[in-house]
Design a protein around this nucleic acid. Sequence first.
DNA 1: AATGAATGAGAATTCATTCAT
DNA 2: CATGAATGAATTCTCATTCAT
Lengths: 189, 189, 189, 189
Amino acid sequence: MSTRDKIITAAVDLFIKQGIAGTTTREIAASASVAEGSIYRYFPSKDELAWQVFDDYHQTLAKRLQQSVINEQQLMDKIAALVHCFLSMADEDWLMFRYYLTSQHTHMQKVDNTTLTPYKVVQQVLQELIKSNTIKSNDVNLLCEMVMGAVHQIGINKIYGRIHGDLLPHKQLITQTIFQMLNANECEK
Amino acid sequence: MSTRDKIITAAVDLFIKQGIAGTTTREIAASASVAEGSIYRYFPSKDELAWQVFDDYHQTLAKRLQQSVINEQQLMDKIAALVHCFLSMADEDWLMFRYYLTSQHTHMQKVDNTTLTPYKVVQQVLQELIKSNTIKSNDVNLLCEMVMGAVHQIGINKIYGRIHGDLLPHKQLITQTIFQMLNANECEK
Amino acid sequence: MSTRDKIITAAVDLFIKQGIAGTTTREIAASASVAEGSIYRYFPSKDELAWQVFDDYHQTLAKRLQQSVINEQQLMDKIAALVHCFLSMADEDWLMFRYYLTSQHTHMQKVDNTTLTPYKVVQQVLQELIKSNTIKSNDVNLLCEMVMGAVHQIGINKIYGRIHGDLLPHKQLITQTIFQMLNANECEK
Amino acid sequence: MSTRDKIITAAVDLFIKQGIAGTTTREIAASASVAEGSIYRYFPSKDELAWQVFDDYHQTLAKRLQQSVINEQQLMDKIAALVHCFLSMADEDWLMFRYYLTSQHTHMQKVDNTTLTPYKVVQQVLQELIKSNTIKSNDVNLLCEMVMGAVHQIGINKIYGRIHGDLLPHKQLITQTIFQMLNANECEK
DNA sequence: AATGAATGAGAATTCATTCAT
DNA sequence: CATGAATGAATTCTCATTCAT
């Protein structure tokens, strides 16, 4: 494991537990078994470390979500694919996913308008569903937010220790609930 | 406006924008037009200030939510009442509501098990709905989280500037979506 | 003696001995019998402290020099007045004068073009002398620099310990030498 | 250009601009296109590098000055020779000369008493002039300092950008001014 | 009650120096 | 010889908290 990766892993772990401002570089260094000064060989500052790691994961997540819907023809299958992708990502690297969830609020305002975000991917899929009359809604944004919120909250739930183990097993139930939220015509599916 | 209230208002405003650890007592004092030392006449420490203000609002919100469902006989009306209460609280004091939303993660682990929380109120209503066969679910927790998440996200939405103005006007749409999530038998309502 | 003045005195003393970059805030605080943090109540940074103190003295010196020549009618008396003023300032507050001499190189490039400087005052007097044909020179700048250099060096001399005690007693000799440099027509004076 | 020379050139350039304490080994290495570690193959420390380079030039300058006066019989020609030597050295390697001028203050106290310095050479010439009654002065030191100061200041002048190009063209004027300072009997020269 | 100067422990950051490759 | 990652002590600066007025 490279010095850089050791720093990232240790930092994310601490950021999750104590927040970014609440974590000291000394703690990061100790936890990574690395000299404090080494952090600054790879990142210009603690805040930049927090941001870069977030941005990296955030963009990866967005790309993976986008990729996941491309192969699906049926629109409702796209929703299922998105849910699957989200839960997979969470299970694959729960540390990073958790960091993404809890630090969104801090970092989101810094995200460039041109950057692909998970939100944009979901919004686009919903818009297609509306266009094709698969679902009906006169407020895509609100609907999109509620869907995102419902899924995010699953993660938050796990953070609070109210869900244990992997999230993927809950896929069926979550997808079903979202289908209902969308009140799709083909709800029977 | 009392010194205490000036401090609270200024602090909450800054906590929202910069996080608690990211806000200095100097900033709070300046923003409240109060001496730095005065903060310590009313609160033992900065962190305690942050916590007390959160706890206060959090409990008020829980009580108000509980109060709102008591008067409703129809179970589904209770859901509507909860949504109404939530949105009203947000519109009444958006600053405090926003602080509640964004600092939950920081404070939630400190909340006593015996304390009445918004989550518990909602969970209880859902359980009643399941018991009475109004809705069906074999995972109340998951459902409860998704419902809470969907509503919370509306607030987050407004924070990010994707919704403008009061939230109450969206009541109809939000309630409808939640009804669908619950897949209630009386969905036709 | 105010905290601010204690900091300035201690800082200047150390800056002289060790240079600005070579002096630590810890040393300044210890030498001033003040907490390290107190430095930052009065100055935004160590470098700014160094600059502000220099700028302050620098401008005072320039104003005093300018004042000193106003009362003199005879042009050559103005030269004598300038020398007198310079040496007086050095003797009055040798610490500050020494700081001015040794930190010039560091700070001079930061001085605003519109600021009155000792150099400008001397240059102006020399120009008057040339205009009135009291002295002859086709390179005021060069002459001015050489005059300034000759006087400055007296101070440097004292720093190196090659002159002891006050500088004012040497006034006669210094003025005489400068008169000669200027090769004034009334050299016989 | 050898690694050692690349380091010296880069270091001197940065020392001039930022001071010695204000220059980092990382900057020196980058500017010299050399690894940071390589500095330590040629110099035991950064400060030693700064000192050795100064000392080297300083001694060379002193020797050259001494050499320049040997061939001159006429005492006043010696003065002219010194000025010529000084200005030549400055024009030949302005970088090093500038470093010598600006870092004198830092290094001078470290110079051994037995070392030949420019000051000593000039002082000796002046003493001979006094002995031979060519000039009159009852304070050789003061006179010597003023002469050195006047010449040094020419260099400082160029550093500040008030003189452009080579210094040698100003030789005539400078020598003349110094003659006047010395108030030599053969001033008419 | 209110003030705000002073504190000093602790945080982020820098940088000369070392050393394995 | 040269490299540049790694080190960690030292440095600048911050900030919650105290306390005399």
